[in-house]
């Protein structure tokens, strides 16, 4: 009796794991399929580029404020903390290098992607989910207009274009924030701040690699947001859950991808 109960609960657990696993794999496959279709129908959407421009406005331009403000604070905090530690070793001039390298290599792309997922990604998921719930996508299909070419692809490319721009702005504004704390407030030498930075930040290895990262994050974040919206059950609850999932999955994906990309880049 007890044995059969134990067996029952064991099989139930295993079944649970199995069904979750198949679900995940299925979603991964469906996401990959949507990604592929998006690429296939991108040509159609490029013919009418103003659609993409419109989405750049909604994803990129509307995220400017949050990106610039957070970058400024991140840069200032970096300078404060960095100075605190570097000063103990008598190398407070290296603060420029510290701020610039942390921003350009890591914080710029990663924090931008996280903020992007929260600001633009959720908006995309909610919008697409709502379009699905209110049968707008269906209506488009019935009008012989392909929703992937008309709705998904422009948003995808807008995200992919916006992300590196936002990340670059993040790095630049962050460095300015660090400069303001380090030079006028703390009193690090102005020349040393910039020259040490220039001597140690490599254009190809640091700046371009940071850009590559942010482009990859742009593809990942936008695609996750689009897929979650496209795949959301057509109910209010379904859309809200999809929105939450967008943030969670995007954030985890960005952090994991960051590790993978960094390890590749450091090997090269």
């Amino acid at each position: 009796m007890i044995k059969s109960k134990l067996l029952n609960s064991l099989t139930r657990t295993l079944r649970g794991i199995g069904s979750r696993m198949t679900e995940r794999v299925w979603r991964l496959g469906a996401g990959a399929r949507l990604f592929f279709l998006t690429l296939v129908y991108s040509g159609e959407s490029f013919k009418r580029f103003h659609l993409t421009l419109r989405e750049i406005y909604f994803t990129g331009v509307m995220s400017l404020l949050i990106i610039v403000v957070s970058a400024f604070f991140v840069g200032m905090v970096l300078a404060l903390q960095g100075y605190n530690t570097l000063q103990k070793y008598g190398s407070s001039e290296a603060i420029g290098v510290l701020v610039a390298l942390s921003l350009v290599r890591e914080l710029g792309p990663v924090v931008t992607a996280l903020l992007f997922a929260g600001r633009a990604g959720t908006a995309i998921t909610a919008e697409i989910g709502l379009m699905k719930t209110t049968e707008q996508l269906s209506a488009m299909e019935m009008m012989a207009v392909n929703p992937i070419a008309r709705v998904i692809a422009p948003r995808f490319w807008a995200g992919v274009i916006s992300m590196p721009i936002l990340a670059t702005l993040f790095s630049m504004v962050g460095i300015l924030g660090g400069y303001i704390v380090a030079v006028p407030l703390i009193g690090v030498d102005d020349g040393a701040f910039w020259s040490q930075m220039q001597a140690n930040v490599d254009f190809r290895l640091d700046i371009v690699n940071g850009l590559i990262k942010s482009i990859v994050f742009g593809v990942a974040c936008t695609m996750i947001a689009l897929f979650e919206g496209f795949d959301a059950p057509p109910t209010a609850e379904g859309v809200s859950r999809a929105t939450t999932r967008t943030v969670v999955i995007s954030s985890l994906t960005v952090l994991a991808l960051d590790f993978v990309l960094t390890s590749f880049m450091l090997v090269i």
Binding site: I165, S171, I175, W194, Q198, A199, V201, F203, I207
Partner: peptide, 13 residues
């Protein structure tokens, strides 16, 4: 911003 990074921060110059 990219130009700024390249010129002022990086060693492109």
């Amino acid at each position: 911003a990219l130009l700024g990074l390249a010129m002022k921060v990086g060693n492109l110059t």
